[in-house]
Simulated assay, not measured.
Amino acid sequence: MTTRVPVERLRLIADGWERVRRPDTLAVEEPLEIRAAGQVVTVTMRTPGADIDLVHGYFLAEGIIADAAGIRSARYCAGAVATGPDGREQNTYNVIDVDLTEPARAAAGLSRTALSTSACGVCGSASIDAIRDRLPPPLAGPRAQVTAGIVADLMRRVGAGQENFERTGGLHAAALADAGGSIHALAEDVGRHNAVDKVIGAGLRAGLLPRADAVLLVSSRASFEIVQKAAMAGISIIAVVSAPSSLAVETAAALGLTLIAFARGDRCNVYSGFDRVAD
């Protein structure tokens, strides 16, 4: 997930600029090509690791599968090779082929091939309306509550669990938790949408989703895509460190989700689903 590179650090001191060369740790960013029965579905720039979880989360969000059983198998392609430092060919682990259980259902979801980057999770969409049409109806069932104190504690623990962010300063984090304060999955990635896909995929594979009291925590802002992914996974509570977009708030409210933003330290703002957040 990380790599070391040389860097020159310049610092202004009393008699001029001091220049020091030292190693620095960076977050790795590499492409992951996702295929279904050999057909390219998408290429996303991600931080390697938890790729199978990422695939499950992505396919669920796109409506290609309905649950973990929708993927019969997922494997790295043996033919995806590159020349390593020793001159030998080695697997890049950057291409995954998925065998889907329900080809007919998958065909509709696969009709839109997207190119996602670490900066934008919905590139390639014909329009926002095209994505909005795939969203499920408002979540039904009992409305679980979470306290503001638990949200603050979860955010603190997610921050403390960002091992690679501490080393690089260049990774987003996402976590899947419950309203009781337990964290079930945590992932880091250069793309916040990839980190979200990874924890949703982990929860899906573990049989934890959908879940009425599930909480999605993200160490960045709340965008439309984050709300969409949570809704498709059956997550009713979202908490983020930074600001929400107007469309994220509008979508969360329309779908009956609770959206909490600016969740930092001893404060947070609730933008929708106010009744789910207790004092």
Rank of each mutant, 00 (worst) to 15 (best):
I52P: 01
G70M: 03
S245N: 10
T44S: 11
A74V: 11
A195D: 01
H193S: 09
R19D: 06
G180M: 11
A175E: 04
A140D: 15
V199R: 00
D133G: 06
R9E: 15
D53V: 04
L216E: 02
H172C: 10
T25C: 02
A108T: 13
Y93R: 10
D197T: 04
G256L: 06
G207S: 10
Y93N: 12
R156I: 01
I260N: 01
A130I: 11
V20F: 00
N91A: 11
T3N: 12
A214P: 07
A74Q: 11
A50M: 13
A206G: 09
D15W: 06
A212I: 08
E8H: 07
A175W: 10
R19V: 15
A253Q: 09
L247K: 12
A74Y: 01
I150M: 13
A243P: 01
L186V: 09
E18H: 06
V249A: 12
A114D: 09
H172T: 08
R22V: 14
N164D: 15
Q162L: 15
A80M: 05
A278G: 14
A206N: 13
G180I: 05
E18D: 05
R22D: 07
R21V: 15
G234D: 01
I238H: 03
R157T: 07
L139C: 06
D178G: 07
E62A: 09
T147W: 06
R105N: 06
V43Q: 13
M45V: 08
D197Q: 13
T44P: 05
A177E: 01
G203N: 07
E18W: 06
A214Q: 02
A37K: 08
F59S: 02
W17V: 15
P103I: 15
R11D: 06
L54S: 03
L115A: 11
P142N: 14
S182I: 11
R72L: 03
G141T: 07
R134T: 14
A233R: 00
R11P: 00
I183T: 12
R167E: 13
